[in-house]
Design a protein around this nucleic acid. Structure first.
Lengths: 340, 340
DNA sequence: TTTAGCGGGTCAAATTTGGCCCAGCGGGGC
DNA sequence: GCCCCGCTGGGCCAAATTTGACCCGCTAAA
């Protein structure tokens, strides 16, 4: 019997109890996310009554899954073994697996993961998306691989959500659409953080912000810069977020004329410095200097983006280029499905 | 993720709730076994407090799985869809799947099914074994098959437990070790009942009891009898119970000298009129006239026997001949494992 | 030393449980 | 065909348990 069938069966027999089990799993994962944590903080985040958290925590303690001390609740090593299963279970019970399947079919993406909640209402959700993205990335990494990771808050959470490992053969490169502004500097930071956690190398390119075009052209001819660019082009895995065109136009402080042009052309999203419209066509390319998308055809493309507002941008980004994996949140997932 | 893993995970997270779900499944299957049935009768059989049955019944009613009226509780068509799953779930949660796996390995039998309970303490268990045996038999039947079924109370329950079907191409033959006594007459009855339920043909051989040897020899030369014997020999599936040697020696009212001989030779069990010892070697063959075991090498052999007392006989019978399936009850299963 | 956050205790309110009875109905015996 | 008995679901209420909403003493970090 398949998993989903078993869960459906049990839901049919005793929905109350299944939900209760789900809440247990939720509490367990919640503790893992914030440990050490107290009942009240946790109850607030999970939107559960304090008393229920207390009862569940007592149960889990009986099972030897957590310890209660003055610092708060913390998971035991035993809990770490059940944790992946518990995460999966919560996703199943929240109906997220169903969302994932539908998205996977509708968007033609092999791997889709949906995190419960709404990133716009709960910052914790973005962390969860980052963690899930990190997990997916980790599962694609083995031996001598090159990872390119872009910038943005989602990618920051991805780097921070990566578990520590020892993969000295792995090289991390900032997947930058161009060079010479603060956004790309941030990509450097993220890449080095990711490399640190993976125990691998990082080929970050440190360039002062706001150089003029000719100075950038000079830099591109430097051997180490060229090396990094080549690495970027043959990256095995490329991970990136998806930005809203409007937000990004403002944040990158583009000249008003450009902003207007972007808007008039119906841009909805931005990746790697490229603004694109609903159908995924490039409307404006921010970086005249750089490698463009920065990946080849054989590489795994992982996109991570959360929040219902980003739904149109996500759809467009996925139309633009065939992706291997999508990590998003519940609200975005539902919005995407309603837009299609 | 595999089923057992999911259940183990949930047990680890919230054992109480999992048990509760198990009880729900138990009540559902219990109702199916005895419907229409009242709370108290059911509570008595399942050894649960009446109130709990009441609560669970209310839950199941909320799920639209059963109706409550003056006649008692009855399942709805919707419940029939979940019923097989519920049966399997109860077996999983009672740890019977574990028993099955261990028996399967220890005895080298591909299909093992263990029914909860003890047939010696609860007659209902034998019915359940019969039902399970019928289910297994049914799963092996398709198109033009010949089934041989032996006698005994377990086989009677197997025939009675078979769901009605329409398999006109199926032929049922009584799997008899010999001819000419009441036991074989019973095999006829069972075979015809089974054939009736399967919607197939029955090739029963009606011979008066207690003919002498020469008269039997004559009968064996009759064309219709020969035909039945040939069918028996090429049966695709053979289903049989396993009797205790002592019981059977008494019940068949053998002469005291034979009974003593059987005992002295350490007979533990009997099938098809053959008495055998612990190692499965034939100690005494009751029927000098007949087809012996009555099956060929290619046929599926299904054995069904319940009750801890039968454990040694079951072990010996399985040593005696390679079986395809074993259906037994919990007490016998545990006794078998403790004896090995 | 202060302070914020922790687990645990407490206790009334709400809910569930346990055990019993009741009126009604349906099937088996006559 | 009819009646009667046994079993049915549902009602009921006290007992037990769980829930909810606090407070308290402690500890670890600031």
């Amino acid at each position: 019997m398949h998993d989903g069938q078993l869960l459906a069966l049990m839901k049919c027999l005793a929905p109350e109890q299944v939900e209760q089990i789900g809440r247990h799993a939720q509490v367990l994962t919640g503790i893992d996310n914030m440990q050490p944590v107290g009942r009240r903080a946790l109850a607030g985040r999970l939107r559960l009554p304090e008393r229920e958290v207390r009862t569940i925590a007592a149960n889990l303690k009986d099972q030897g899954l957590l310890t209660l001390d003055a610092a708060g609740m913390q998971l035991t090593p035993k809990a770490d073994q059940v944790l992946p299963g518990a995460r999966d279970l919560t996703r199943s019970l929240f109906g997220l697996h169903d969302l994932e399947d539908r998205l996977s079919k509708a968007l033609n993406i092999p791997y889709v993961l949906v995190v419960a909640g709404d990133a716009e209402k709960d910052v914790q959700v973005l962390r969860e998306v980052g963690r899930a993205c990190a997990h997916r990335l980790r599962s694609l990494l083995s031996g001598q691989k090159t990872v390119a990771i872009a910038g943005g808050s989602t990618m920051m959470e991805t780097a921070r959500g990566m578990q520590f490992a020892s993969l000295p053969e792995v090289t991390v490169v900032p997947a930058r659409g161009g060079m010479g502004n603060s956004i790309e500097t941030q990509a450097n930071t993220i890449a080095s953080e990711l490399a640190r956690r993976l125990g691998g190398r990082c080929k970050a390119i440190h360039v002062p912000d706001s150089l003029d075009a000719s100075a950038l052209g000079e830099m591109l001819r430097l051997p180490e810069v060229k090396e990094a660019m080549e690495l970027l082009e043959k990256a095995d895995v490329v991970v990136h977020g998806i930005a809203l065109a409007d937000d990004m136009a403002l944040r990158r402080s583009l000249p008003p004329s450009i902003v207007q042009r972007i808007r008039e052309n119906g841009a909805v999203g931005e990746t790697f410095g490229d603004f694109f419209d609903r159908s995924g066509h490039t409307v404006y390319r921010m970086n005249t200097v750089g490698t463009g998308l920065g990946h080849n055809e054989k590489s795994h493309l992982i996109a991570a983006a959360a929040g219902a507002r980003k739904a149109p941008a996500i759809i467009a980004a996925l139309r633009r280029e065939r992706h291997d994996s999508l990590i998003t949140d519940e609200s975005a997932a539902q919005e995407i499905l309603s837009l299609l």
